[in-house]
Design a binder for these strands. Structure first.
Length: 781
DNA sequence: TGTCATCATCTTTTT
DNA sequence: GATGATGACA
């Protein structure tokens, strides 16, 4: 894990470089001609157009090693930027492997954001900040904006603060400070957008805080206004590598151009077909105009695909060819044909989840003449995260082990943020946002009125909320329970602050003391909701995570940037994630459910961005299909619940774009002869094998629907899960009160084999697998 | 001030 | 279906 130890970032070469004078380069032999060209074109601008699965990361890391190996730069003179922490880690790992040693000496390999934090800490004063500024998460940001909106007397129902946040984010992504917002944007947010943006920036400065967008924006401003600073870094970073260039926004683009302005030794890697972050301000245009920005650039295309079968590549290629203005690449492969992309329609979303669950079970044992797939080799990629739910419910029911990647992030959970707010307040007592968050958590009898008094006291005296509270107490401005509790809190924070300065006390102990004495832990212990045990567990994990850090401050810094949760529990599991989260990953077998117009392509994307929106969605489809190595299964449902309301769905337009020759249409499961009549493939241009059947209006289908409730949910197959479950059954009795990790507490109504029918207090009656249920009294924590 | 019920709104995608 | 905001009540 990267630490923020900046000491040797600019000092002499810490390891590898010393020994790096021109060694032989055996690693070059591992590359194909295109990759090799991209690696060996070391000087001047290089654009590497790397299609999906063409060995992009390999080329990039090899290039980095080659730079070191030829003695062109020392490890700390290379700036390499990625978008995600995961990608940065991966690169470090692979560079290390190629060098045959661990890479501690690459201080400037990281995400845009983490690198900008390092730089901004050094130059904070140039934008009126102190170098210990805090980084706000979206939650803090929103609360701050809400205050401003309300203070401006705006009806925040008609003009939600969320929207303002979006507008400001949009502007920051284009590197527009309040002064630079173009006149054409003046109508944003009821015409008050710019004024509020200005106020917001002012507030941030007062709080000595920045938001995510600021990290880049401030650095761009600094580089633009302070030539000496810019020059210094232009000299220092002798080579620049950029991953996922198609995802850069304007601010990032300007940042890169400024830094590369001198030597122009910049190598950008990307794939215009995989640009899927337009909604976040990414500009495909950046990659499309690279050659104009850097005349004489070497452009290398990586087109040999090492990941997928020809059928999969052809299907992906067919879909993406519908987009205009592509740089154009033709992926090819040497591997054998393999299976066609499979397409299947279902009656509704639940049926789809059920079918995929069963298909996964049979694929474990090998089915339809295919090799067996392990659960780790299979993934379900959805458009929107709410689609995951159907699968989770289903898999919980049948006892299929699964893992959700990129779900609700650990550090975004309520209890973690609360705890972090306490820590922040201990470290910096003037953190008003943190104070607001926890004054009345746990409940201290400090409602709106009391909090307003604190605000007033703070403002009148020109001090932080915490100090304001202290003054208010001295002046006896509060009484009763609230006063006593607030006194305890203020006192506590002072005490903990002293402890933080006491070297004899570890920050881990301190964290425990804070959570304990503040009553926060107790609050959850007394909480009877099903989430409480999990939250306590998370708090424990949080404290454990502190171990990797010197002090609370370092930890807070880390957390604000590393938002992904790396809880890699082992065990074979099916992966479920969004298409966005899947970028850069690959799986032997991939399921792509929910290909229905409105859902995918998403209605919102089409409404907001029109044709551009559809094209981005199409790229998303391309990303999805190209994640598959051997088998790709696309599905759609004729009906789906949207906002809790049933809606009939049309198959996605992208289905029409799949080239027929590379697609096999599967017959839907069940007793009804299948087919795709009214709700199915009509008009898709693809011949269904069962096209003659009248599909979902057939009597057989209706019969099936009528019986859906009683039908055994899955044909028991010899899976590991059910064997274990069978043994577990005997430990439960009808009427027993039990606890389930997802559904909470409930009473057992009946037992059927390895499944229990349980009346949950919150979730209602469900059938679940016994192994997910524990006695209500022995909850593990 | 805290709690409960009702109601509206909502859903992409994330550093 | 679920969450958040609002308002009546204890």
């Amino acid at each position: 894990m990267s630490s923020f130890d900046e000491t040797d970032a600019f000092e002499g070469a810490s390891l590898a470089a010393r020994a790096m004078a021109a060694r032989p380069a055996p690693y070059l032999d591992d590359l194909n001609p295109a990759q090799r060209e991209a690696v060996e074109a070391l000087d001047g601008p290089v654009l590497m157009l790397a299609g999906a699965g063409t060995g992009k990361t390999k080329a990039l890391t090899t290039r980095l090693v080659h730079l070191l190996n030829t003695g062109r730069a020392r490890p700390n003179e290379i700036l390499s930027v990625t978008f995600t922490n995961k990608a940065a880690r991966e690169m470090k790992l692979r560079v290390g492997r190629l060098l045959g040693e661990t890479v501690e000496g690459m201080p400037w390999l990281g995400t845009f954001h983490s690198i900008c934090v390092k730089l901004l800490r050094r130059h904070a004063e140039l934008v009126d900040l102190k170098s210990n500024f805090t980084i706000l998460d979206t939650d803090d940001q929103l609360r701050l904006l809400k205050q401003l909106v309300q203070a401006a007397g705006i009806d925040d129902k008609r003009w939600p603060a969320r929207q303002l946040a979006g507008v400001i984010d949009h502007w920051k992504n284009r590197a527009w400070t309040p002064d630079k917002v173009p006149a054409g944007e003046a109508s944003a947010y009821d015409g008050k957008g710019v004024a509020l943006y200005r106020q917001y920036q002012e507030r941030l400065r007062e709080l000595n805080a920045v938001d995510f967008g600021d990290l880049l924006l401030h650095m761009v401003v600094i580089f633009q206004n302070h030539e000496d600073v810019l020059k210094q870094y232009q000299r220092w970073f002798r080579y620049i590598l950029v991953d996922e260039y198609q995802d850069t926004n304007v601010a990032q683009y300007m940042w890169l151009r400024l830094l590369a302005g001198g030597h122009k030794n910049i190598c950008c890697v990307g794939d215009d077909d995989q640009s899927i972050y337009g909604w976040r301000g990414a500009e495909v245009g950046n990659i499309l105009r690279f050659e104009k920005d850097f005349p004489g650039a070497t452009v290398v295309r990586l087109e040999q695909n090492y990941r997928s079968t020809p059928h999969i590549l052809a299907a992906a290629g067919g879909v993406i060819s519908g987009n205009k203005g592509r740089l154009g690449k033709e992926l090819w492969t040497e591997v054998d044909e393999g299976e066609k992309v499979r397409l299947i329609g279902h009656w509704d979303g639940e049926e789809e989840a059920r079918w995929i669950g069963e298909e996964i079970e049979s694929m474990q044992g090998g089915t339809r003449g295919m090799r067996p797939f392990s659960l780790d080799e299979m993934a379900i990629l959805v458009r929107a995260s709410h689609q995951m739910r159907a699968f989770e419910d289903r898999f919980l029911t049948i006892g299929m082990p699964y893992r959700v990647i990129g779900g609700p992030r650990f550090y975004e959970r309520m209890e973690i943020r609360d705890a972090m707010a306490y820590f922040r307040l201990v470290v910096s007592p003037a953190d008003d946002l943190a104070f607001e968050r926890i004054v009345n958590t746990p409940k201290r009898g400090l409602g709106d009125k009391a909090q307003q008094k604190i605000q007033v006291a703070a403002r009148q005296n020109g001090v932080s909320l915490l100090e304001g509270a202290a003054i208010l107490l001295e002046e006896k401005g509060l009484s009763g329970k609230g006063a006593a509790e607030l006194g305890r809190l203020v006192e506590g924070l002072r005490r903990w602050g002293r402890m933080a300065g006491d070297p004899s006390m570890s920050h881990i102990e301190l964290a425990e003391v804070v959570l304990d004495e503040s009553g926060y832990t107790e609050m959850w212990q007394n909480d009877k909701t099903p989430e409480a045990p999990g939250r306590l567990e998370n708090l424990k994990e949080l404290v454990k995570a502190l171990e990797g850090f010197e002090n609370l401050q370092g930890f807070l810094e880390h957390v604000s940037l590393i938002m992904d949760n790396e809880s890699e529990e082992q065990g074979e599991k099916v992966s479920i994630m969004t298409l966005h989260a899947a970028k850069g990953l690959e799986f032997p077998a991939v399921f792509l459910p929910g290909w229905e117009d409105g859902l995918f392509p998403s209605q919102r994307s089409m409404d907001e961005s029109g044709l551009k929106g559809v094209e981005e969605e199409r790229r998303l489809a391309y990303v999805g299909i190209t994640r598959a190595e051997e088998l790709c299964t696309i599905s759609f449902a004729g009906n789906r619940r949207v906002y809790g309301q049933w809606q009939s769905q049309m198959p996605s337009r992208f289905i029409d774009e799949l080239p027929e020759d590379h697609v096999e249409v599967l017959t839907p499961p069940g007793l009804y002869g299948g087919g795709y009549g009214s709700a199915g493939l009509g008009g898709s241009g693809i011949e269904s094998r069962a096209a003659e059947a009248d599909g979902y209006n057939s009597p057989g289908w209706r019969r099936l629907q009528a019986r859906a409730g009683q039908r055994p949910l899955s044909q028991p197959r010899e899976s590991k899960a059910s064997v274990i479950d069978a043994q577990a059954v005997s430990s439960h009795t009808v009427g027993e009160r039990v606890f389930h990790q997802k559904f909470g507490y409930g009473a057992i109504l009946g037992i059927e084999g390895d499944k229990l029918e349980i009346d949950f207090e919150k979730a209602g009656v469900k059938k679940v697998v016994a192994k997910f249920v524990s006695g209500a009294d022995d909850i593990p924590f």
